[in-house]
Design a protein around this nucleic acid. Structure first.
Lengths: 226, 226
DNA sequence: GCGCTTAGTTTGTGATCACATTTTACGTTC
DNA sequence: GAACGTAAAATGTGATCACAAACTAAGCGC
């Protein structure tokens, strides 16, 4: 009769389809499923050792997310993850991050401000160590809090795919030069503006932050992948 | 052997699933499927006179688009289309429209500029007649050209759902006061900035345009629906 | 030798069946 | 009478089968 001390929202056993969605998404990001390549349902079914049904549903969902291009009776292809695609994703993220930052500066409660600052500090600690995995995790947490402050799940959903993509690219291509230290400085400016309730400044700093990240990642991408 | 004089991209017979996606989406926008209501696969299957299979795929895709909230083994519910949801959609559209306008001002070719101006004039003609359906069609065409100029399909996809929603709401709630004339004036300012290659001005005018549309639509929505 | 046609294969799509989970309703017990 | 537990119905999920459309390649005619 003991009430399980889990997260408040009890999760009702994820279905196989959901698991396949995550698996395919990860394989696309990691390049296991080459960008631009054709996706065959039966192949994926045997690869993930499941029936064709969960794969079909997963493909539909990923098509909705924009990771697959599907045409009736002709199957699906992985979207081309090239320089222009990355640029487009970042262009969108820049606009949305600016909006999120401005909203956060306007709507933030005191406890949220404190949580954001704590996440910023945690990120700085990770940056000092130079452990890229830890940096990525801390950065994800920082921006998750920021997104929550903006209280716009519609925009969150639009940004979700881009976040996953860029995070995976970072893990593969790494950071360039003094990008880690720059990120820390940009976060500080952003948090200062949000804490001060300066929506315009927060938007500006957020956009600068994303633009700088884009420039660095594109440089790393071209240097690594070609 | 006559080559069919169709659109250049030959469309390979849309599947039933695709048709169901459009049908459900329309029914959600039109309120036939009440916002927040539970979706049952079997019900929809009989409603649209198809098997359960296409419905399942359609639900997955609509979940990816953000129109449905799904939980494993508990089915899907229509997202709550209330004031805050509309506000969130418009908040995102404002940011993305600004980005699109800036990109269009930067990248536009001469012929694209001319096409945009022509679409603007067509919209003005429609606005003079006061025929809301014609206005919506002309407005859709105007923004379609604008989106194409920005050449960012990733952002396009993110905006697609919002466009469909607001268009449907417009058809239901109508325009308020002198909103039709205001729209014409805002379009003129936006086009002037784009033609002049003024990215910053284009972004500003686009955001003002969306913000004004949001304010008017929310007023109409509250007056009409509740 | 080149192009079109046509048969064969592959592959996406739709339908039906079987099962697991959830939800609802009823009955029991304190 | 309320709360818990259990049985039954409803419903989402997974698997297999059957069909149709698209791609491939071989065969035929020019």
């Amino acid at each position: 009769m003991s009430i399980p001390s889990e997260t408040p929202s009890d999760l009702p056993a994820p279905s196989i389809g959901d698991r396949i969605v995550q698996a395919i998404r990860r394989d696309i990001f990691d390049g296991v499923l080459a960008s631009g390549s054709r996706i065959k349902i039966r192949d994926l079914a045997v690869r993930y050792a499941v029936s064709e049904m969960p794969v079909r549903e997963a493909l539909r969902q990923l098509e909705g997310e924009g990771l697959l291009d599907a045409q009736p009776h002709r199957g699906a292809t992985v979207v081309a993850i090239d320089e222009t695609f990355i640029r487009n994703v970042y262009e969108m993220r820049e606009a949305l991050s600016g909006m999120v930052a401005a909203a956060a500066a306007t709507r933030a409660t005191a406890s949220e401000r404190e949580a954001l600052r704590a996440a910023m500090v945690a990120h700085e600690r990770a940056a000092e160590t130079g452990d890229d995995d830890a940096i990525l995790t801390a950065d994800r947490n920082f921006h998750a809090i920021l997104d929550r402050m903006a209280a716009n799940p519609v925009a969150d959903r639009a940004m979700a795919m881009g976040r996953g993509l860029t995070e995976s690219l970072r893990a593969r291509c790494g950071f360039g030069g003094d990008r880690r230290a720059q990120t820390v400085a940009e976060h500080r400016a952003l948090v200062a503006a949000i804490v001060a309730g300066d929506a315009r400044g927060a938007e500006l700093f957020a956009r600068v932050h994303v633009a700088a990240a884009r420039a660095d990642l594109l440089r790393q991408f071209k240097a690594t992948a070609g």
